[in-house]
Design a protein around this nucleic acid. Sequence first.
DNA 1: TGTTAGCATTGTCAATATATGAGTGCTAAA
DNA 2: TTTAGCACTCATATATTGACAATGCTAACA
Lengths: 330, 330
Amino acid sequence: MLNDRQTKLLKIIVEDYIKTARPVSSKAICDILNCSSATIRNEMSYLEETGLLEKTHISSGRVPSEKGYRYYVDHILEPRELNGEDMLKLQTIVNNSSLMLDDYITKSMEIVSEMTNLTAIVLGKSSKDNCVSKVEVVPINEHNLIAIVITDKGHVEHKNLTIKENVSINDIKQTVDLINKMIIGTQLNEVGKVLEYEVKPIIARYVKQHEVLYNAFYTAFTDFAKESVTMTGRQNILMQPEFNNADRIRDIISKFEDKEIVNKIEENDSGINIYIGSETEFDDDVTIVKMKYEANGEEGTIALVGPKRMEYDKVIALLEYIKENMKEGK
Amino acid sequence: MLNDRQTKLLKIIVEDYIKTARPVSSKAICDILNCSSATIRNEMSYLEETGLLEKTHISSGRVPSEKGYRYYVDHILEPRELNGEDMLKLQTIVNNSSLMLDDYITKSMEIVSEMTNLTAIVLGKSSKDNCVSKVEVVPINEHNLIAIVITDKGHVEHKNLTIKENVSINDIKQTVDLINKMIIGTQLNEVGKVLEYEVKPIIARYVKQHEVLYNAFYTAFTDFAKESVTMTGRQNILMQPEFNNADRIRDIISKFEDKEIVNKIEENDSGINIYIGSETEFDDDVTIVKMKYEANGEEGTIALVGPKRMEYDKVIALLEYIKENMKEGK
DNA sequence: TGTTAGCATTGTCAATATATGAGTGCTAAA
DNA sequence: TTTAGCACTCATATATTGACAATGCTAACA
């Protein structure tokens, strides 16, 4: 393990590099640690041997390696209090009691994205395990209906249905009544099964154009279980100096376009998970911070994407603040 | 005006540059026009005098100027038939009769974006002048309601309402009934007024907690009139060689983040509008093609964003095909 | 009058050279 | 264990060069 001075040195180098994005030289540090640059250099070369630091070229200053960041995050990083200004900004959201959970999260993350210059992602709001609490069908004209599904967690989904053949309004009404009776309380991702094995046999007996109606509703419901992804501050990460060449940027943008990419990473635990560089399977210079939340029985995940060179302490403080204030029932 | 050979020359240069992104030399053209490179050079320098061509440096080949593209689009461009392959791809969307107008447009534009390597934007689906056809309120728990508004054009909007004080279910029901009675048929952007001057006075008399309820519904409805913007193929434009430096790309991405940017351009007429370079107020190397549509009484705008160097004939053919097939009632 | 061949001119691009400065490693002495 | 001193290395910036791709211009030609 590292001795006291080595730990301090690593901390200084990581934090300086996070701030400036430039390799840190021995000379720059001697004032802080009260010793000469040569001493620092000796310690530096030890930290390089252990794989915590790297040089960009033979005569450059030192830069934290991936392992260095990992060590910093796991052992050195000390939790930071939110500063007053940041706290204040978030509090206006927390105190806005007319916001429901989803809006609270989305808005908070927008603010966090702005404060940290990172890209914020709100994933899931996973309504898969929400239960259907009401189905409503509203006719628009002869051939078009709108089906609206409301879940017990307050999620609303709607879909336009087009029915080619002439189907009597009565048949539609009957079908909807039946659906309402049979699938309320069913989890969204179970609805398909219930429709097929329980609803279909019944409407087949009572409703004339049952095939047409069944197909329309079936496709509508199976579309509902999809997850949503929202992103803000997409461009923030691109402003960082490590992404200053066109191809790099194009690569990142393309990866963002595939919204699943961040979702692919499996969480280890229920707290804040930090994936650095190659651990992200996204880009070697990127860190992704993910946090699962659960409040009012709703689950979801929020994530921040940015350069490895991010202010880990601030990010953690912000996410914890958001989670803390989420518990107080929204 | 230009004589026949000059017109041909400009056409060749524009189309060659669109294809290759490289300045066009006199030598490359002499075969096509059956004359020597010197003759071409003479004509080229005339076209340069009139401002239709430019050089990137003193001894380079010629590139169309903004004015050159404009002249090409206005006077030279000849409408092109869609090729079979492209037509086929779009037809699967056109023939999918279960799609309503919005979905038809979104999906078509996704395909067009892919076929042209441009960025597609669907703006508006402007529901401002839609009329309310139904208001539904579903209680989620003690303090939360969901308000759902359906318009006559089949748009659905929903919003979570939180009501702090204890309000009886009966009061809510009464209010919703009243709202339903009074605002059905009202245009979305008029709802605010009707609520304030017609609904409020009445609920003030009949409903106990009328202030709380009124405020909740008022904010909910006024949020509804907002317009939606969807984009696909954001990264396409960045792959073009004219945007091969990091700062350029960052600039474009930031501008996309401000979704209003494309909306800001006022249309001149109801057909296809082409804005080239500085006319876009977006970027001097960018062309924006916008088209308004109106079908089933619904209005909207679709746009394609790409380099000035885009295949204008193809883009026009595609948009016209989309518009044509929209008329046939969806 | 319009077209063309020939040639000097001009600028890009890529490769190479040169100078500067920041930072290191190593060694020997404190 | 720490440090001063020095040689060494590499990045960065700037300048130099030659090959090449075009052009403009001029004079001759149809």
